[in-house]
Design a protein around this nucleic acid. Structure first.
Lengths: 134, 134, 134, 134
DNA sequence: GTGGTCTAGACCACA
DNA sequence: GTGGTCTAGACCACG
């Protein structure tokens, strides 16, 4: 799996790492139960410190996306143990979307255009289409 | 206008300030051309540091939401000067939405449900217009 | 507040730190809303690395015992926001108690004796009695 | 005897092994004097490393729960040689229970509820005696 | 070799 | 000065 990190971004590296892995799971690039690279090897691969990878893994574990298996190492959680759509999640998502919606309204982006963007993102992610022909 | 700040949040205060003002403009609570409180008075009102308000105003100005006149003070930008839907904006929005979409897919939130959430947010924000002169 | 750490113990320092703070809250030694020492100062006080303190604080925050307030720094969560008795908590507690109960049965410790130990612990903690006259 | 191991748990496998065996003794599932599987066969049965089983057995022997004879192999200690309720044990138990009690107090779990949980655990463990000869 | 823990020292965003 | 992030290097428990 290819990790696209922007070390210059103001988004913390461990967050980018988390996002990449979550997107990997969403796209099917990473299958439930599949093993992930060890903290050390991934850190070496992408040229960052192992603690940074460790933090990403720890947070993903806490959220339920991955598990630390004592024999298999780090693995993607099985499908039925992936985090579900809880009320807490929907509340969090609302909080995240709200400022985006407000800005969209200010700029005059129609709801339809926004819906279309999301539509494209859903298809983009689910078809592993990483190049985006837009 | 009421500012709702969460000092426990991991979102910086100046960002929350920006979001509140943008949402105020989106909801019509703040009209184009309307005057905003001075840095000093706003900071005193909500009990935060001058620098924090300053930073929020500076960024809002930079993005085109507000204007700072020597005489009139801080005012909301006139309608035709509010930031438009540029390609850069759409790209930024895509980058912001992508991880949210990926997580939604992982958790099994359908595209329809997500669209509905956004629909509700649009209505929620746009009908919050209290025109309150307090 | 006095921190009693055993650097030789196999219990991680950050765990001991968490336990001490939780006991401090339980005993009333730390009041809801009260400010805790900063990561740096606490680390310096007890002669450990600031990252270790940081980890303890981060976990306590995650569990809801403390909050990171942007103005006041680290504070004990207000009483009504302290973690409640959830089913998840009871399940966790059961898992923790089970092996202790099994060992107690093996050794022939009666249920009454165990109940009495807990009774004494409750009183001990709630009366800030840190010396234990047993 | 069935071993329930959780490879995702943060509890080391050898510890889980110990706990299972101790609970087996407590429930009567394993009788004093009864033979336990050899290190080799147990390791093979539950699919873990030899060293892991070895470590569990060594610690159990050290604590007095099992005995290792050259000829008879591994057997559960006779009833009168099982570890008794020593002061050291009570002290250790106190140390283990203390943080649990502190957390319970913080969350508002009453002493009665805690006592009831322990009561249920005692009965749960002691009635699990299936005397299964498989 | 794995993850977990701890240390040390550094930079930055925030208020 | 605060917490947050990242790096570097080390030791240990586990399997």
């Amino acid at each position: 799996m290819i990790m696209e990190l922007d070390l210059q971004s103001d988004v913390p590296i461990y967050t980018q790492l988390m996002e990449q892995i979550i997107e990997g799971i969403a796209s099917g690039d990473l299958s439930p139960g599949e093993a992930l690279p060890s903290v050390r090897s991934l850190a070496a691969d992408i040229g960052i410190n192992l603690h940074t990878v460790n933090k990403a893994y720890a947070l993903l574990k806490q959220e339920g996306y991955i598990q630390i298996h004592r024999k298999k190492g780090v693995v993607v959680a099985p499908r039925d143990e992936l985090p579900p759509v809880t009320e807490a999640y929907k509340a969090k998502l609302n909080v995240q979307l709200r400022p985006l919606a407000a800005e969209a309204i200010c700029r005059g982006l129609s709801q339809g255009e926004l819906a279309e963007m999301i539509d494209r993102l859903y298809r983009d992610i689910q078809t592993k289409n990483n190049t985006g022909s837009d």
